[in-house]
């Protein structure tokens, strides 16, 4: 299906982006995707040819332990962006992403977005800046997460 700039304008990740840039991104749209509870959005190691703007729902980024138990690293919600493996070779998903609740996303084609950014460095800069911001926020959260703040048995100072 076709994606129009109006589909993009309301998403938190693209908030405030210029009209012509939204229009350029819209041409890279791969369409809306719906995932039932428990359904995988992407699998570790698979081709990352798309990324997702989450409209609503709850998505767990996870990996599988030796006992096949899934370990959830973080969950993402409506308004957040899922996936940045499409940006750099080898374009493969690093983790699993699974819908914890019924989830709807707007998928964008990674190759097309890369090409669009190549053609329009201003779009490329704007998108990279937005992704960098998301990466920084997730990294800061991950660092706090790594501190294991509620561990009741921390090593004694």
């Amino acid at each position: 299906m076709d994606v129009s700039p109006t589909d993009l304008v309301g998403h938190g990740f693209l908030k405030g982006m210029a009209g012509e840039q939204l229009a350029a991104l819209a041409t890279c749209g791969a369409g809306y995707r719906s995932y039932a509870e428990g359904e995988f959005i992407c699998r570790e190691g698979a081709n990352a040819d798309e990324f997702h703007l989450i409209e609503h729902g709850l998505v767990a980024l996870e990996t599988t332990a030796a006992d096949r138990r899934s370990l959830v690293m973080v969950t993402l919600e409506g308004g957040e962006v899922l996936g940045w493996s499409w940006m750099f070779p080898p374009y493969r998903w690093y983790f699993d992403a699974r819908a914890v609740a019924a989830t709807r996303t707007l998928a964008l084609n990674g190759a097309l977005v890369r090409a669009a950014c190549q053609n329009d460095p201003q779009l490329g800069y704007e998108l990279t800046r937005r992704i960098a911001r998301v990466v920084i926020e997730r990294l800061q959260a991950t660092r706090l997460h790594a501190l294991d703040l509620y561990n009741t048995h921390p090593p004694r100072k």
């Binding site: 709850l58 767990a60 138990r69 959830v72 969950t75 959260a141 997460h145 703040l149 509620y150």
Partner: peptide, 23 residues
């Protein structure tokens, strides 16, 4: 409600609580 560590049996959020302030 969010937790730092969970397996797939948990149907809620995973991640630090600070992320929810903006939401």
């Amino acid at each position: 409600v969010t937790v730092d560590h969970a397996d797939a049996a948990w149907r809620g959020s995973v991640g630090v609580v600070t992320r929810f302030v903006a939401r």
